[in-house]
Structure formats: C-alpha cells, structure tokens
Nucleic acid binder design. Structure first.
Lengths: 340, 340
DNA sequence: CTGTTAGCGCGTTCAC
DNA sequence: GTGAACGCGCTAACAG
C-alpha cells in the first residue's frame, strides 16, 4: 500500500532536478515549459503522490475558489422543520459550483454575527456569499451587499433594496394557486403562511390578485399568518382548523405547511380534497408521494442554483449582475379534487 | 456608511506604532503583551475593521479549521430523491462543527475522484473528512482511512473494515420494525430496500431475526431489493404492489420509500393500514405529517452529528477513536393500525 | 525555455 | 515586554 504523504513543491523540484518555478509551471500546465521537462516533472509528482497545497496557492493568488452558502433557516434549526426545499436548492448550488471548480462552504451563521468576524470575505475564506432567504435580516443584508458586491441572495425582489436577488415569481405563484382553487369551484379560500416574510408576502399579494380578478371579496379573517417554525406551523394549522371559519380551500405557502395542515384536517375529521381543497408551494419531491398527491406551485430549483452560482461568480469577478425573477408552474395532483 | 476594506496586520501595527509581532500577539490575546498596548492595538484594529486573514494564519499554523463532509448520495443527485434524512444529519453536523469553531466544507464528490486530487487532506483544504454513507465505495473508503486516520464515516459497522464509523443499530432497528408488525397481527411481511447497501443489509438481518424469533419462516420472495434512486424506488414499489404476492405488511427501509410505497398502494386501491401495514425508517420530520402518520424507527441524528464531529476532531488531533453503534427507537403512529 | 529573487499575510523563534 | 528575522508553500516578476 503506497503512502500518500504530503510533500512540498520544492521536494518535487529537487527530485526532478529543476527549480521550484519550473516545477510550478509544469504542474500548472504553463506553455513556458518544455514538453519534455513537463512530462518529467509530472511523472515525479505522481510518483510521490504530490498535490499542490491549495492554501498556499490561494494565499499567493489572493483568491479562494470557495463560495459560502448561508441559510438563516439554520439559525433556529432546532425549532425548524428541515424543509426538503432547502436541500434541493443546496444540491443545485453544489452541482453548479462544483462544475466551475469551486468549493462550497456551508455556514449556519450569518456573516454579520460576532462583529462581522464571521464574514468570509473579510477573513479571506471565500470569494463570494450566497444567502438563502431574507426574512427579518433584510437590513443587514442591505448593509453587507453595500460593502461587498460579491453577495447574492435567494428570496424576494424587494424593489427599494438594490442587492442582487434570484427568486421565483411569488406573486404569480400565489395568483396561480388561488386561481386554480377558484376554477375548481371553491368558494371560501383561506391563506396559510407568515406574510411578514417577503416571499410569503408576495404570495399573499398574488392570492388577493386572483380573488380580485374573479370578483371575489378579500376576507382578512381567512389569512392565517404562521412563522416558519415547527411548533407554530402546527399551532397555526390547528388554529385554522379550529377557527370555526367556513372555508372549503386553503392556499398553504409551502408543501411542508400543506402537509402539516392536511394531517390536522384529517385528524379533525375533514377529508381532502372533498371537504377542503389544498394547494402547496415548492413542489418538493415528496409532495408527489403524499396522500393525497399535493397540487402545488413548482419552483425551478435547478435553474435557481444555476443562476445563483453564475451571478455570484460574475460579481466576484467584478461584473455587474441584476436580479432575476424565475417563472413558476402549477402542478395539478389530487389535493384539490377534479374540476367541477 | 463605514467601509469594510480588508487591511493587513502590518498596517494595523504601523497605525498602532508597534511591531507586527506585538500586534499579532495582542490580537491573539497572548499574555506576553502589556495590557495597555494590547488595548491600544485592539482599538486600532476595530477602528479600521481589521480581521485576521485566516488563509495566511492557517498556512503558518499548518491547519485549516475545516472539516469536509462528503455525501456519496450526491454523486447521482439528479436521479436521487433529496432525502430529508440527509439534511437533518447535515444540520446536526453543522451545529456541532460550528460550536467548536470549525467550518463545514460540503462536497458532492468523493475524495478519491480525479486521481485523489479532490482529497482535501492532501490539498490542505481540510483537517478531516466525514463521509456520509458507504454503499459501493467501501473499498475506497478503506484505502483512504488506511492512509489518513482523520476520516470518520456514517454508516454500518462492517466488522472486517477497521475504519471509524458512527451509525444506528440497524439490525435492532430492523428487528423492532418487524416485531411490531408481527405483534400487530400481520401474517405476511414484505421487505423493501436495497440489501446491497451495508446499512440496509443489516436492517434485513434484523427483519429475518424477528421472523425467526416469532417462529415464522423467511420467504425470500417477499424481499424486494430497491436501489436508492427515484425511478427505481418507484419501480420497486410498483413491483411489490403488482407482484401478486400476498402480503399484509411491509417494512420499508426509509421513510421516503415508505411514502412512495403507500402512495402506490393507495393508487392500486389498497388502504393503509387496513389492507397493509407499513413501517418506515429514519423518523424524518415529515413522517409525522404523512397521512397516515408513519410508524417508523427513529435514528438519533442529533447524537449522530455530535459523535461524528467529536470523533473526526479527536482523530485529527491524533487520538484513537473507535466506532459507535447508536440505539434506535420504535415510533408508533397510525400506519400499522392498532394492536389487535 | 529556465533559474533567481521576491513576497502573499501571518506566527514564532531568538535576541534585547 | 518588545522588535527583527525567518519561513509556512506557492506563484509571478525579472533576468538570462
């Protein structure tokens, strides 16, 4: 079994009887080196299992080839349902980063914690940051993006905040969901989600828009605001279920929330979709496996990951990059019954 | 708005009218520096928003404060259901790493790809590696762990492979699941899962053990082996559903597989738990939200993350660390009906 | 084409 | 207590 001891460039150079520079050039595939000596150096390097020390290389090159991904969701992980949506988006980001030769540093803490010591751009740990979700930290993001252009966020495009964001067309998503519920003959449609979060706020806008388009009145009592926290999701679903309100449909603003709601509905003796139709949001992979199959609004996570990576790398390279709103799609399954 | 320009230690030293060494010592909190000058340097540093460059620091210290987490699951992500189980374990790992001041480098590629160039231990990118899952790459893991002790894997403890693994007692889990199905009065219990994967193999052992303990015969035709790949999960669930085999219970080896199966069962007109009882594995958070609530075997992901981190850091520090088998627990919900 | 020199930003000997 | 010098491992500028 060959030992994989880490060696230094100078050792390789010595063994190959060339200078460090030539060894370096050979390894980097520089055209400034003779084909013969290049082959020689490469062979020696392979022989002693040499690999360049990225740390030293990065120090010299003043770059890192690392992008940090931060999920505020994680800040209160213990209270939070591990939403598969995040994993799917993370996967897409990882794939795209990898394809471009970048590493992914995953952080559970926002960059502005510990008096900005956590900021990987300041500590030289990363070349850029992808922030997942804005929530309440929008002002901090604003400040961060103001100092560092190489920041991109996944979330809602808030007009007066001029940082680069990639996200779905949440207004249209909300509209589509609600429109579908209306088209399927439902009369009283409730809304379940934390409208203080920008993305959810937009979905609520779409909800009201669809109502208006159909000439329906908007009843504020049918909007149930729920923080993204497992106890609260549960409580709000319960609150809605036990509200005594008369509703025959619910637009739940995430698939996980929809599932939580449906399980409560069923526990309370109501059936889905017969008694109440439900549409979710995200098109998480398990929504197809749910019983009943969840009708939902699909976000294109693959495209999202691609765009986030493209933009953050472009910005790290000094280019300008604007925000992008991605189209959404209605996926019809069984949780709303059939068209009447 | 204050600019957060990255400055160097020598600049801070100059501004503080001390040498680089003293500045370095002051920032590191060394006792070799006078309290007065320490305060002074710190103030200057704060004033110009100085943060030490970790890259340079690490190069000097020959360490990285980074642990790489690799999930082979990701190698074929496009075909794979984003299993929430992974996200929950990842979260636990991240929390523990963070608490110890370590960063988490997430990799979609195993360290032995690209002729070992991906190995973060060789490139100086990380101090240790946590591998999630063994699957078919067991020989490569074996070789890797042989060269580098600072590797820990989540999976099944295969006796003849002497690397450090943390995992659940899968045999006992399989036994508990099957025993429950028996105790609930089921006669013909099928097994659904890819027994070529070590962990699933152990669960299958437990399945047979419970059967034997109850004096039941083992019918190989009731074991349906399914690769962890979305199409195949679906196909195998379908295969099982349409097999014509006479079964009134299924032990599905993950919650996601269980959900997929149940949705097929229902589509085929059978009801759960009345016609067939199902128990899953993992106790993923959404299993409580499923309809019907999924009876399952809980793995302690929080403990798992804690142990993985403790062991990898200990090993990176040169200490010995053996494998750990964690206890599992049966969580009874509605998918098996009530005890007869 | 190749070797010599210098320095990325920091921590740590060793003198004073 | 403090400063000067050195080197972590590598790449880029400059000669030749």
């Amino acid at each position: 079994m060959k030992k994989r001891e880490v060696r230094t460039l100078s050792e390789v150079a010595e063994l190959a009887r060339v200078s460090e520079s030539t060894a370096s050039r050979a390894l980097a595939g520089s055209p400034l080196v003779a084909e013969k000596t290049r082959k020689h150096v490469l062979q020696i390097a392979k022989l002693c299992n040499y690999v360049v020390n990225q740390n030293a290389r990065n120090l010299r090159l003043k770059q890192t080839n690392v992008i940090e991904v931060v999920s505020p969701v994680w800040q209160n992980r213990r209270k939070t349902i591990a939403d598969p949506f995040f994993l799917e988006l993370l996967g897409a980001i990882g794939d795209n980063l990898n394809a471009k030769g970048y590493d992914l540093l995953l952080s559970t803490q926002p960059p502005w914690n510990d008096d900005w010591q956590r900021n990987p751009l300041m500590t030289g740990k990363a070349d850029g940051i992808i922030l997942i979700g804005q929530g309440a930290s929008d002002p901090m993001i604003h400040e961060l993006a103001n100092d560092y252009p190489q920041v991109v966020v996944w979330g809602a495009d808030i007009p007066y905040q001029p940082y680069c964001v990639v996200g779905s067309d949440n207004v249209e998503g909300g509209r589509l969901a609600t429109e579908h519920l209306i088209s399927v003959g439902r009369q009283s449609i409730a809304f379940l989600g934390d409208i203080k979060m920008p993305e959810i706020g937009h979905r609520h806008e779409g909800y009201r828009k669809a109502l208006a388009e159909a000439g329906r009145p908007y009843d504020p009592d049918l909007t149930f605001s729920v923080p993204f926290d497992v106890g609260a999701v549960h409580n709000s679903a319960l609150e809605l279920v036990n509200s005594g309100k008369d509703f025959d449909a619910v637009f739940a603003t995430s698939d996980v929330i929809a599932m939580s709601l449906i399980s409560e509905l069923i526990a309370s003796g109501r059936s889905v979709p017969e008694d109440v139709a439900v549409v979710g949001f995200d098109n998480v992979s398990s929504s197809a496996l749910y019983n009943p199959g969840l009708t939902t609004i699909a976000q294109d996570m693959a495209l999202g990951g691609k765009l986030l990576v493209e933009k953050v790398l472009a910005r790290a390279a000094g280019e300008e990059q604007g925000s992008t709103l991605m189209p959404v799609k209605l996926i019809v399954r069984s949780s709303c019954g059939v068209n009447l």
